[in-house]
Design a protein around this nucleic acid. Structure first.
Lengths: 115, 115
DNA sequence: CCCATGATTCAACAATCATTGAAATTGTCG
DNA sequence: CGACAATTTCAATGATTGTTGAATCATGGG
């Protein structure tokens, strides 16, 4: 199984984080993840309402490379989760207000992840 | 005098805000503004350490069009300020954690604005 | 009225981005 | 093994971005 690149959280730069957040689809992925009841149980394939599979894969990579999310493979399925603790340590308080901002805004698409 | 465009704060979208923040020079402008002792007294010309005049103008426009800053002309000089209250009303808590994030990080350039 | 100053605009460029659809990959199950 | 399902990768595209330097536009002062 090919291992996807996850940056060390210390190497993540603020500008890269914000650039990764500067897209409605990626914000949609993020709030959907944040609103998911069960942590670390969100399948990549559950996001198809937001975009085509290949485009989703592109956006997943952007979020992952910006240190925001983690992708974990389990068999043929991949699970996506927010790097909560690490990110909180690196940028205290940031992710909460980002998620709250995105959550409140109707321009951000979102899906219901039934786990 | 040509009037620069400032969006209504209600029209500003989260993704546009984050896209505007996704550049180190613009983050540098923002933290320098935030750390300026006197509000609304920062001349555009005081930022030349961060970039050339024309590039600065480009980045000022990005921040302005994202609803983050306001540009005010006074004679031949322009002053730049953060749209604090409006922005806080539109996206509560966001700007503070963004500024704090940028302020803490050494990758974000900054200048001392002596007013 | 001309000139210097502060700042924006414009034209050009390479680089990156978002998007699409087809192809390759990886693991599962019969 | 071989078909299938879930994802990623690749190649191609048009659009947007960051940057540069030259040109332009105000405004205030001699």
């Amino acid at each position: 199984m090919k291992q996807l690149f996850h940056p060390e959280i210390e190497d993540v730069l603020p500008a890269d984080v914000f650039a990764a957040l500067g897209d409605p689809i990626r914000l949609g992925i993020l709030v959907s993840l944040a609103d998911c009841d069960e942590v670390d149980k969100a399948r990549c394939g559950a996001f198809t309402e937001l975009a085509s599979p290949s485009l989703l894969s592109y956006h997943f990579a952007k979020l992952r490379e910006a240190g925001i999310t983690r992708s974990r493979a389990e068999g043929t399925v991949r699970f996506l989760s927010i790097r909560r603790e690490e990110f909180e340590r690196r940028f205290p308080g940031l992710l909460d207000s980002v998620i709250e901002t995105a959550r409140r805004d109707p321009s951000v698409p979102r899906i219901k992840l039934d786990v």
